[in-house]
Amino acid sequence: MREQLLALQEQALVDLAEAEGNALDAWRVKYLGKKGELSLALRSMSKLSAEERPVVGQVANAVRETLEAAFASKFAEWEAKQAAIQEEKETLDITLPGRTRSVGAEHPLQKIIRRIEDIFIGFGFTVEEGPEVEWDYYNFEALNLPKDHPARDMQDTFYLSEELLMRTHTSPVQARTLEKRRPEWPIRIIVPGRVYRRDDDDATHSHAFTQVEGLVVGKGVRMSDLKGILLTFAKELFGENQEIRLRPSFFPFTEPSAEMDIRCIYCGGDGCSTCKHTGWIEVLGCGMVHPRVLEMGGYDPEEVTGFAFGMGVERIAMLLYKIEDIRQFYQNDLRLLKQFASLPE
């Protein structure tokens, strides 16, 4: 009996080696099925003596395990082979493009505004906004620029009526904020927005452009604080090693007034065409809020002081992204804009 079982096993393994596909199923039925040969062989065990039965039983179980294991392994092997054949058939050209919807681009000016906002939000500033059609009062008078003040020449203005105009800077929001918040302080705001000057459009001038204004009013605010915050800002925006310098200048609504230069970000100060070989690039105007502006806004300049600054977003974007013509920001050529879909900060 034992020999018979082992012979069966041997025969079965030989058959299994040959079997494929349906033949595998047939093999399983033939050897391991309920009416298969192993079952038949086991059924004849009843004829064995009580001593022989457990021994043969053991052998029979061993044979079953061997065959089942062999089958499982053979079946898995066959399945894997089939899967491989199937996958071979289903093989794609993975170099073909993926199915995407375009990633939309952020407008370069929006990108710069967002960065500037985020930097100042980190400093504890909030973001204020104001109308683009503005009253003469807020655009000029409340900023210490009375009618016929010669400094109004600096900014040629689009008018809608005697008193209504397109704001020439974001500074009217300074006056509006003082009026709204008085007598409370501290005030720490930035103001992004579109402004208008009556300039013919060319590579460096635009009748519409974008500014970000800043205003801080509080007890003991000093010009050194202005310098400190601008230095940190410049490092955040242009890089950790950025240096700045302040130069005396004039704005009717600040006193003292200054221009802020950054070390040329292209030549590092050695001198190049961008910085006109000075090593410095002018990026913003700033100063201590003029006492008249505080007074007109309802604050006592003896009690609080403040600083303000304003920068041109286009200018910064042109520097950072090496855009050479300001009109490109408003031309919206997709060949340019699309580059801002993926541009890093």
Binding site: I121, G122, R188, D225, K227, G228
Partner: peptide, 20 residues
Amino acid sequence: GFDRIPSTNLKGALSHGGLS
């Protein structure tokens, strides 16, 4: 010379920055 102006930090209470 404006270079003599030091860089300092704003004094006073912290303010809460953010977007509306």
